[in-house]
Design a protein around this nucleic acid. Structure first.
Lengths: 202, 202
DNA sequence: TGTACATCAGTGAACGCGCGTTCACTGATGTAC
DNA sequence: TGTACATCAGTGAACGCGCGTTCACTGATGTAC
């Protein structure tokens, strides 16, 4: 290699990072090769030295997003007792900050609408992401001794994703804040958490 | 007018109907003027006799979708006692039939992902649709004597939308069916309904 | 140490394609006499 | 009743534009001697 061994890899990572940003901001159907490359400080022609097609880029970028989501879950829950861990993750998930920063948020609500039209490998990643997160929540609920942990986990995840999607879609800040607050209150009650922190933080 | 008075109106309705179909199937960003016109049995040039732009078409089509959704809610709830009405609507909403027929389903999960990128009038329609449906569910819960009807209604709607979105996004029929079943069970319990019908129908 | 060479990440012009929109036109139909 | 005319919904070629992809090239860099 003429450039040092990591050079190309670093460039690829930069392009990938910009692709993630673009998917989050514009949606997976609107990402453009030229735009992503320009934001990475390159011209569009060089793209094919790193990815064989736009579809491959999107697939890789979505993989990156799910890796990030697993990280986020870890960050909020690792080393905490189950009730506190659940509380922390839900408070984050249904926070106005999460709603407002599509750039760093959970990929599930961002991708769910476009997914039925996407290629199989992406759908498989998504399905695994859902299963993984549901299982993680279920695990916490089982530690709390809940007998219906599986149903409760699936239900909580569905509500969290639905509430976040709605709060982003609805324009007015009041209506949007209310959607998040109602779901935080409901989840706190259903899962036996304390809602205080959640309410105040909003 | 050279053609009888209703001729143009009927054509417009046909184009609009195809636009609704296309938005539901392909998503609002993918609808094409030429495609919609072709499905309506016309050539693309004639489009501008009916709509001044593609954006106007999309706006009108989405209006149509929300009108349909109000109809659907009425159909499942009108003339029924509140508990039965709620049960019927939720059973419909979280049915595999609803999941599988994007062509006739609720516009909220279909549009929520694309909405943050859409024009103001569309967002206003969406926000009104959410408010209306939440209020209708809240009304039923109040008739059932629930003190926290507002929170419960917002929470139930969020869960229903989230579960439907996830069940559509996830590929495998088992995982998808399970998501619906869990949310039906959870909502039935939370709202004091009987889940039998829901479980069996899936 | 200095010079000639080989490599290959990145450049930028060009391609075919589908899109939304425009526009001169056509021809089926209702109206006037 | 029959004929000439006016209307206008719908046609289809053309436009400019942005897209994903290709490709001949360039020039900064590492290697060989």
């Amino acid at each position: 290699m003429r450039y040092d061994a990591e050079h190309k890899e670093r460039t690829r990572a930069r392009v990938l990072k910009e692709a993630v940003r673009a998917i989050r901001t514009e949606g997976p159907e609107r990402v453009g090769v030229a735009g992503v490359m320009a934001r990475a400080g390159l011209t569009h022609g060089g793209f094919y030295a790193h990815f064989s097609s736009k579809d491959e880029l999107v697939l890789a970028a979505i993989g990156e997003m799910f890796a990030g989501a697993r990280n986020t879950f870890e960050r909020y829950t690792a080393g905490r007792p189950p009730r506190e861990a659940l509380q922390a993750y839900i408070d984050f998930y249904l926070s106005t900050a999460h709603r407002d920063s599509r750039e760093y948020g959970c990929p599930l609500p961002i991708l769910s609408g476009d997914l039925p039209r996407m290629a199989e490998p992406v759908r498989a990643q998504f399905a695994e992401g859902v299963a993984r997160l549901t299982a993680a929540i279920q695990g916490l609920l089982e530690q709390l001794g809940r007998p219906d942990a599986e149903t409760a986990a699936a239900s909580a995840l569905a509500e969290a994703i639905g509430a976040l999607s709605l709060s982003r879609a609805v324009g007015g800040p009041e209506q949007s804040d209310a959607i998040l607050a109602h779901s935080r209150a409901s989840l706190a009650e259903r899962l036996g958490l304390i809602d205080q922190a959640g309410r105040d933080q909003a």
